[in-house]
């Protein structure tokens, strides 16, 4: 007997045919979005990239 495995993050795949054909983030990806240490790093990287884009645009 295979034990039922419920993954909360995957529930929306069944809510719509269109949803089932795209990607939905799992637990790790979602946690990283609000992980302060990781987000501070991303904040710095995004800012550097944005400053370069601004610089290239002027």
């Amino acid at each position: 007997m295979i034990e039922k495995k419920v993954v909360k993050e995957e529930a929306n795949f069944q809510k719509s045919e269109a949803f089932s054909r795209t990607m939905i983030p799992g637990t790790f990806a979602r946690k990283m979005r609000t992980c302060l240490i990781w987000q501070f790093i991303r904040f710095a990287i995004i800012n550097v990239k944005m400053i370069i884009v601004v610089g290239k645009s002027h």
Partner: peptide
């Protein structure tokens, strides 16, 4: 590029 996260809120 595009990415999703709290950092975007700060920006």
């Amino acid at each position: 590029f595009g990415e999703i996260g709290l950092a975007g809120h700060w920006i």
